[in-house]
Design a protein around this nucleic acid. Structure first.
Length: 289
DNA sequence: GGGCAGGTCTAAG
DNA sequence: CTTAGACCTGCC
């Protein structure tokens, strides 16, 4: 990996196993806009960046070297050797086709608070609607972080901005019955202000059960928070697509618990990556539908 | 118009 | 501990 800084932009060369399009569009993050082929606008960590990928390089516009090293390098998981992980996973023949289809995806290290709220909103909904809800929340309660092509963009609202909102404030953002879930999450963090940083240091099981004390956070959302918000690669969120995909690959698996156990035993600390590869493959091939 | 979404809650056996 | 039903909302 070779990094060049010039004129408010960062260019990264010699990057293997990285596909910007798959990484952005595979369903792990919600706040992006496609500007063209391999060309995106992304909002994360209170920053607005323009991203491009070509044959030889990955470009981040409106970013300094400092921001790259402090945020984006980790955000895009650029220091993990995905080629090596893919090689390991290919030992299971059933995964060769999936890896071939999904390789290039990187697990994004996103903000835990944003991920918590976003995935609480995700239950029983389709991805485009989730994105609409999140944008509504940001426009209402997030602070302005920049403009691009005469459009104003907003950060994801912080705890203080979402605190003391009424159910009708939230329902105005079309979150539906999840209004109470959001309030529960806000109250929980308000009561235990260090909780989101404490989770980082907890054992997986501890963090997993702590998160589920929040109303609206069940097994799937808790795994998602740990995977996308904390980069805990042993997590294996099982949603409908993963359930369909896993039953397709391993017909002997009957319940979500069996799928969960199978993943822990067979994928271990690569579970999160397998999960995202399989999700991307299953949803685009409509496996099991 | 009925069905379906990156599920979770609740109330029952 | 496991399992059915209900649930906001928008888009097909």
């Amino acid at each position: 990996m070779r990094i060049v800084e010039s004129d408010q932009q960062i260019t990264v060369y010699d990057l293997s196993s990285f596909d910007l399009e798959k990484t952005i569009e595979c369903g792990q993050c919600f706040r992006w806009k496609k500007l063209g082929n391999k060309h995106y606008l992304l909002i994360a960590h209170n920053q607005l960046v323009e991203l491009l990928q070509s044959e030889e390089c990955f470009v981040l516009k409106h970013s300094s070297l400092n921001q790259f090293n402090q945020i984006w390098r980790n955000y895009f998981d650029l220091d993990r050797d995905y080629a090596l992980i893919n090689h390991t996973l290919e030992k299971d023949e059933k995964f060769i086709e999936i890896i071939n289809y999904s390789k290039g995806i990187r697990l994004l290290k996103q903000d835990p608070f944003e991920i918590l709220i976003s995935f609480i909103l995700s239950s029983n909904r389709s991805i485009p609607i989730i994105q609409c809800n999140i944008e509504a929340l940001c426009e209402q309660y997030g602070h302005k972080i920049g403009e691009f092509m005469e459009q104003t963009y907003f950060a994801f609202p912080d705890l203080a901005s979402l605190n003391n909102l009424s159910p009708s404030d939230l329902r105005a953002c079309k979150v539906g019955y999840r209004d109470a879930y959001i309030q529960s999450a806000i109250q929980f963090i308000d009561r235990y202000p260090q909780i989101l940083s404490d989770i980082e240091r907890m054992t997986y099981e501890q963090a997993y059960s702590t998160l589920q004390k929040i109303k609206g956070v069940g097994p799937k959302v808790a795994h998602c928070v740990l995977l996308f918000g904390y980069h805990k690669m042993e997590s294996f969120p099982v949603d409908v697509w993963i359930e369909r995909g896993m039953k397709h690959l391993y017909p002997q698996l009957k319940t979500i618990q069996e799928i969960q156990d199978f993943a822990r035993e067979n994928f271990g600390h690569h579970s999160g990556i397998v999960q995202q590869y399989l999700f991307y493959y299953a949803i685009n091939h409509k496996i099991g539908k």
